[in-house]
Amino acid sequence: MIMDSLTPYLLLSAGLFCTGLMGVLLRRNIIIMLAGVELMLNAANINFVAFWRFHPSSEEVSGLAMVVFAIAIAAAEAAVGLALAISIYRHYRSTNPENMGDLKG
């Protein structure tokens, strides 16, 4: 069931991270950009869990603890970010970040 090498997990994680990065760079909708950020956080979590699994000691659970904290913080970030998106939409009637240039110098 499990791969006996760390490389495939790291490659999957790198691929997901770069997909999320491309989503943040390419899309013109703040909600989808937030989805890209969530994808990048998830890619980092895969790395944490893979390194935990390949650690020789069975008492070491720092990797899992980090993932628990990362999931909680990502949930809080999503809630606040989407509330901001709704608030910005009420103000500008748009979710395109290019239309939000009021403070641009």
């Binding site: 937030l34 899992l64 628990v68 949930a75 999503a78």
Partner: peptide, 28 residues
């Protein structure tokens, strides 16, 4: 992937938090 790696708690938290909450929040 988490479940395959043997991290059951993380895998089920991922299902609860991300599939159950975050994606529904995004859809809303």
């Amino acid at each position: 992937v988490f479940l395959q790696l043997g991290a059951e708690f993380i895998g089920f938290s991922q299902i609860l938090v991300y599939i159950g909450a975050v994606s529904i929040l995004m859809l809303f």
